[in-house]
């Protein structure tokens, strides 16, 4: 069963902690991905650039509308994601609990809908 873990981070809290702590957190997350890979539970994972670079795209009446900014204005913003392949929700919760960003944020766990016929990337 595949789950997507959406990592919501408090960007300001990490800024306060400084670049050293941020680097350490990323190292911790990379270690986690390798442990997952050893158990064949890893599909993919990546942090995202800070949300300041986000843009929003809509198509209305056939016209493209591009605006600035993230979709939701929340203190914690989507800062990265994992896609994992585990047995059940408890295992997904166990992985989410090890995400270093949890110290300043939250992880939302969403089951991925598997549809046939998608290409391999």
């Amino acid at each position: 069963m595949k789950y997507m873990l959406l990592c919501y981070d408090d960007e300001r809290a990490w800024e306060r902690e400084g670049p050293g702590a941020q680097r350490a957190a990323i190292d911790e997350a990379v270690t986690l991905t390798h442990e997952l890979a050893e158990k064949d539970q890893y599909v993919m994972a990546s942090p995202l650039h800070p949300q300041a670079s986000a843009q929003l795209v809509q198509v209305r009446d056939g016209k493209r509308i591009v605006t600035d900014g993230p979709f939701a204005e929340t203190r914690e913003v989507l800062g990265g994601f994992y896609v994992i392949d585990v047995d059940d929700l408890d295992q997904a919760i166990a992985v989410a609990s090890r995400h270093p960003g949890l110290r300043h944020g939250a992880v939302e766990i969403r089951p991925v809908m598997e549809i046939p016929g998608l290409p391999n990337g």
Binding site: H34, M44, A45, S46, H49, L56, F71, L78, G121
Partner: peptide
Amino acid sequence: TVEVRAILEIPNLPRKLETVGAS
């Protein structure tokens, strides 16, 4: 609405994103 976010590429992830299929 589609939100476009740039991915921060970091080295040393288990498999490169390119090699991973969605299904």
